[in-house]
Computed example of a mutant assay.
Amino acid sequence: MTEPIIETANLGRDFVRTEGPLLRRRRRTVSAVQDVGFTVAPGEIVGYLGPNGAGKSTTMKMLTGILAPSRGRVRVCGLEPSRQRTRLAARIGVVFGQRTTLWWDLPLRDSLALTRHLYRVPADLHAARLAELTELLELEPFLTTPVRQLSLGQRMRGDLTAALLHAPELLVLDEPTIGLDVVSKSAIREFLLRLNTERGTTILLTTHDLGDVERLCRRVLVIDHGRTAFDGDLAGLRATAPTPRTLVVDLVQPEAPIVVPGARTVRVEGPRQWLELSTNPAAVVSEVARAHRIADLTLREPDIEEVVARLYRAGREEPTALPRP
């Protein structure tokens, strides 16, 4: 059998927090991650999800060797991250959406050249990979632009390039599309899919964007309060914690709250109304269109925060596992 590229068991990480008045300070141990266990096979794209403060970033830092676990076991690419961090760095790529690994005042091309030396990539291989990534991510127009002058979408493409120039087996992404416009998000998602399909690169990403998950991930892990709460596919997650979709209706002019079978009007602002759906959206749309003058319609899926919140409101304390897709 193929060895997992990520393997964790009973993984935990504690922090000591100092609290109280100045002359009566006391120390308290806080568990950011308590008992996380999962494996990721080579070639998978896995979404690692959960609300803010759930322990996602702490887990990522343990997987990449930035933090040592307080207890439990973790191996990435067959290595122990905190003890073999230098060897691991040569086999993984890491991108944090709100931080950059590029040199702020240097042109992008120079930043990528310095990255080559950090990873000790031979010049010919670096040139070949940079040419390929330049084409795939459309970097050419801004390779000579200082990083500080790049847009957020351009910088993210530069960070992805820097993380991939040494051809890592695993790509770890923390909020890779945060703050990006619709066009940039789509470009990043399509690139990641192609990277996984054509190169077989394993991808683990945290995100609050349901679009990232739906487009990229066949499998999702949900963590909350430091524990694994779900491991399965997105359909299974929604089935475990069903959350209604919302139909946003823009009427030609303001009207009384819409009343149709299979929907409940939960909000009205002028000509715009929000309907919480409990049945097939097509039937509701058809009924609304028949009885009202409509300017526009938008169907909104629940975001990950809503699904996870409902999962925990349901009182699920034990991990839920579904068959892998």
Rank of each mutant, 00 (worst) to 15 (best):
G37F: 10
A32E: 05
P51M: 08
V30A: 09
R26T: 10
T58S: 03
I45K: 07
I45V: 15
G37L: 07
V46D: 02
K56G: 01
R28F: 07
D35I: 01
T39E: 07
V40G: 07
D35T: 08
K61Q: 14
T59C: 10
R26Q: 12
V40L: 08
V36M: 04
M62G: 09
R27L: 11
V40I: 15
V40C: 11
K56D: 01
I45W: 09
Q34T: 02
D35N: 15
G43W: 14
G53F: 02
R26G: 13
A32T: 04
R25L: 15
V36Q: 05
M60V: 12
N52L: 00
Y48N: 00
K56T: 02
R25G: 10
G50L: 06
T59M: 12
T59N: 10
Y48T: 00
L49Q: 02
A32Q: 08
P51R: 10
G53D: 03
Y48I: 00
R25F: 10
F38I: 14
S57E: 03
M60E: 03
P42L: 09
T29K: 04
S31K: 15
V33W: 05
V40P: 08
M62Q: 08
S57P: 06
T59F: 06
M60H: 03
A41N: 14
V40T: 08
V36P: 07
T29L: 10
K56I: 04
G50T: 04
S31Y: 14
M60N: 04
I45A: 11
D35G: 02
Q34F: 00
R27V: 09
R28V: 11
G55H: 08
G43H: 10
M62F: 10
G50R: 01
A54G: 14
P51T: 12
V33D: 11
G43R: 11
I45C: 13
R24Y: 03
P51Q: 07
E44C: 13
R28I: 11
R26I: 06
L63R: 05
R25H: 12
G47M: 02
K61T: 07
G50V: 06
Q34H: 06
M62T: 12
R25M: 13
T39A: 04
V40M: 07
A32D: 01
V46H: 04
T59R: 09
L49A: 02
R27Q: 15
N52G: 00
A41I: 09
T39G: 02
G37E: 08
R24W: 09
R25P: 09
M62N: 09
S31E: 14
L49F: 05
V33I: 12
P42I: 11
T29P: 01
V36G: 05
